[in-house]
């Protein structure tokens, strides 16, 4: 699985050489998270109650999702290099018109609420499907996140797993400078979520965290510590989102 994530990372950097307008920092921080989810956990089915749902609530990391959907054979590989062009199916943010995309996102703070709705319906109907949601740490600023996490607990959604890509940055800079979020795990925990911390670039750490989440009777959030722009040295660990000029 490490080789898949390395391949995806390299592929994404090559795509970025063709298309500058990608949110590369945010995309590269969640490569392992999405690789682990899509290659090991997310179960595909045409039955909405039996399939697993993956919602990329931090929709600006769409390129990482698309690269993995291409590996899965759901979208053509060549399409990746046309991403965001007028004749490409691959939109800047995930759209349900794209095969393998379960929910259209792009506006922060909405994915979790949608996931709570899906997980509630699955439970109501006795399905076995799970809902996986990948959020950003900056996204925690949105008020709707509060509305959703408090409701998920009331519904006792054991089939709901959230992974927060904790890369330490939001659009305007470091989260600790803009609005600190170190207290977030405590808040989710106090409300009634099972909270797990892990290394978001370590496949084994992610697997161990998700395996624990699968047997929880409460909804689970995994705070996965990551590095923004991981693997692209010009931007790694900085607030720079993209490489404007390749030398």
């Amino acid at each position: 699985m490490e080789s898949i994530s390395s391949y995806v990372r390299e592929l994404l950097i090559n795509i970025h050489k063709n298309e500058v307008n990608l949110h590369m920092g945010s995309t590269l921080s969640c490569v392992e998270i999405l690789t682990v989810l899509l290659t090991k956990y997310v179960k595909r089915s045409s039955n909405p109650l039996e399939k697993d749902w993956l919602i990329l609530s931090k929709g600006h990391a769409a390129p990482a999702l698309y690269a993995l959907l291409a590996l899965e054979g759901l979208i053509p590989y060549e399409e990746l290099f046309k991403m965001q062009s007028i004749d490409s199916m691959l939109q800047g943010h995930p759209d349900t018109s794209i095969a393998g995309v379960d929910v259209s996102t792009g506006s922060l703070g909405q994915g979790l609420s949608i996931g709570v709705g899906i997980a509630t319906w699955i439970k109501l109907r006795g399905g076995s499907g799970r809902v996986y949601i990948v959020m950003g740490d900056g996204e925690q600023d949105e008020g709707e996140v509060w509305e959703a996490i408090t409701h998920a607990v009331v519904r006792k959604l054991s089939n709901l797993i959230v992974i927060v890509d904790d890369n330490g940055y939001q659009l305007d800079g470091r989260v600790c400078d803009i609005k600190p979020k170190y207290f977030m795990p405590f808040i989710w925990s106090t409300i009634g979520w099972a909270v797990i911390l892990c290394n978001g670039h370590s496949v084994s750490s992610l697997i161990s965290a998700i395996d624990r989440a699968l047997v929880n009777e409460k909804p689970t959030v995994i705070f996965a510590k990551t590095v923004r722009g991981k693997g692209l040295k010009q931007i790694e660990g900085t607030d720079i989102q993209r490489v404007e000029l390749w030398s």
Binding site: P48, L49, W53, D102, V103, G109, Q110, S113, I114, G115, V116, G117, I118, A119, T120, W121, I122, L124, R125, G143, E144, E147, A148, T150, H151
Partner: peptide, 24 residues
């Protein structure tokens, strides 16, 4: 089949969207 999400209108709409996307 009745859900009161609390004083949370943004969540209300997306929660309903989730139910619809899953077939309700």
């Amino acid at each position: 089949r009745y859900f009161n999400v609390g004083i949370s209108e943004q969540h209300l709409i997306d929660f309903a969207a989730g139910i619809a996307v899953a077939g309700g």
